[in-house]
C-alpha cells in the first residue's frame, strides 16, 4: 500500500523570513544605493522632500491596507482626491468673503475635505456592502465619475485657491515642528495609529477574518456588512486628510491631480506584504512599500544612470517581483 505523509503536526510559529524581511531589506538596499550614488541623497533637504512627497500616497495607502486586508479594493482614490481637492478649493474661495483670510477659513476647508472624503467613501461602501456590487466595478465607476467631475468643475482647466488664502495655507505643507514638516508628521501619526488598529484592536482582526473567509466571519457573529463599509469610510476620510496636506503644496486642482495615485497606493500595499486577496495585512509594510516607491523615483532623478522616464517600468517590475517573492507556496488543499 501507499505510504502516506500527513501534513506536519507541530507547525513552527510564524518565522522571521523573506515575507517579513524582504521589503525592509529592499528599502535598506535602496538607501545604500542612493547614498553611494549621490552625496546629497541623505541630506536633510532631500530626505524631507522624499518623505513629504510620499505622505499623500502614504496616508491613502494606510487606508487601502484595511480595504485590501478585508478582501476589497478601491480604484477611485486618486480621482477622489482630485475631486475632494476641487471641492475644497471652491468652498474656500466661496467662503473668503464670509470668513476672511485666517484660521477659520483653513479649518472650514479642512472640514469640507474630510466630509467630502467621508461621503465618497460611504457611497462606495454602501454600494459594495449593502447593494452588493463588486468592489472593483463600483470603484472603477467612481474613478471615472470623480475624475470627470473635477475636470468639469475646473471647466477643463485648473481650480486655483484664492491667492491670499494660498499664502496663508502654504505653511501647512512647508512648515512643521523641529524641522519635521506637517505632512510627514501626519503621515507618521496615521501610520502608527493604523498599525495599532490593525494589530491590536478587534477592528483590525475582524478585517483580516473578513478577508480570509467571509463565511467564517459571518458565523463568528461579526457584522460583516458594517465592517466592510467601515473600511471604505476610513479610506475615504484618509483621502480627505491626504488632500488637506496636498492642497497647500500647489494651491490648485485640475483634471490631472492625483492621476495614478490609486495604483501607487495599491502597489505600496502589495509591496508591503499585504495579501491582495485579503486575509492578511500589515500597515508598517505598507509604509515601507510607499518609501520604496518614492525612493526609486528619487534615486532615478538624482542619479543619471537610468532615465527617470523609466520610473514607472521599474516600479512595475518591483510590484510583480514583490508578489513573486512573497508567494506562500501553494495552498494546502
Amino acid at each position: 500500500m501507499s505510504d502516506t505523509i500527513q501534513t506536519k503536526a507541530p507547525a513552527p510559529r510564524r518565522r522571521l523570513n523573506l515575507h517579513v524581511l524582504g521589503p525592509v531589506l529592499a528599502l535598506i538596499a535602496l538607501i545604500a544605493l542612493g547614498a553611494s550614488l549621490n552625496s546629497n541623497f541623505l541630506s536633510y533637504g532631500n530626505v524631507t522632500n522624499v518623505l513629504a512627497r510620499s505622505s499623500f500616497i502614504g496616508i491613502i495607502a494606510v487606508g487601502m491596507t484595511f480595504v485590501i486586508t478585508a478582501g476589497g479594493i478601491d480604484l477611485s482614490v486618486g480621482s477622489m482626491a482630485a475631486f475632494v481637492a476641487g471641492v475644497m478649493i471652491m468652498s474656500m474661495n466661496a467662503l473668503v468673503p464670509v470668513l476672511g483670510i485666517g484660521v477659520a477659513l483653513v479649518l472650514a476647508g479642512m472640514g469640507v475635505a474630510l466630509i467630502a472624503g467621508l461621503a465618497a467613501g460611504l457611497l462606495n461602501g454602501v454600494l459594495i456592502a449593502k447593494v452588493r456590487i463588486e468592489a472593483f466595478i463600483v470603484t472603477l465607476g467612481a474613478m471615472g465619475v470623480y475624475r470627470s467631475l473635477v475636470t468639469w468643475l475646473a471647466d477643463g482647466g485648473t481650480l486655483s485657491l484664492n491667492f491670499d488664502a494660498r499664502s496663508f495655507y502654504r505653511p501647512v505643507y512647508y512648515d512643521g515642528i523641529l524641522g519635521v514638516t506637517w505632512p510627514i508628521i501626519v503621515f507618521a501619526v496615521v501610520a502608527i495609529l493604523g498599525e495599532l488598529v490593525m494589530r491590536h484592536t478587534p477592528f483590525g482582526r475582524h478585517c483580516a477574518a473578513l478577508g480570509a473567509n467571509e463565511q467564517v466571519a459571518r458565523y463568528s457573529a461579526i457584522k460583516v456588512d458594517r465592517l466592510r463599509m467601515a473600511t471604505y469610510v476610513v479610506l475615504g476620510v484618509l483621502v480627505g486628510l491626504a488632500t488637506i496636506m496636498y492642497v497647500p503644496r500647489l494651491g490648485s486642482a485640475s483634471g490631472s491631480t492625483g492621476v495614478l495615485w490609486e495604483l501607487e497606493a495599491i502597489a505600496a500595499v502589495i509591496i508591503g506584504g499585504t495579501v491582495l486577496k485579503g486575509g492578511y495585512g500589515r500597515v508598517w509594510g505598507t509604509v515601507v512599500g510607499v518609501l520604496i516607491l518614492s525612493l526609486i523615483d528619487n534615486i532615478l532623478n538624482l542619479a543619471s544612470i537610468v532615465s527617470p522616464y523609466l520610473n514607472g517600468a521599474i516600479q512595475g517590475v518591483i510590484v510583480v517581483l514583490a508578489v513573486v517573492l512573497q508567494r506562500e507556496g501553494k495552498s494546502t488543499d
Binding site: R205, H206, A208, A209, G211, A212, N213, Q215, V216, A217, Y219, S220, A221, I222, V275, G279, Y280, T332
Partner: peptide, 16 residues
Amino acid sequence: NLALQLSVEENIFLGR
C-alpha cells in the same frame, strides 16, 4: 469553519 490565514488564537476568539 476556520479562517486559514488567521492564527489558532485569533480563530478561537473571533467575534468575541
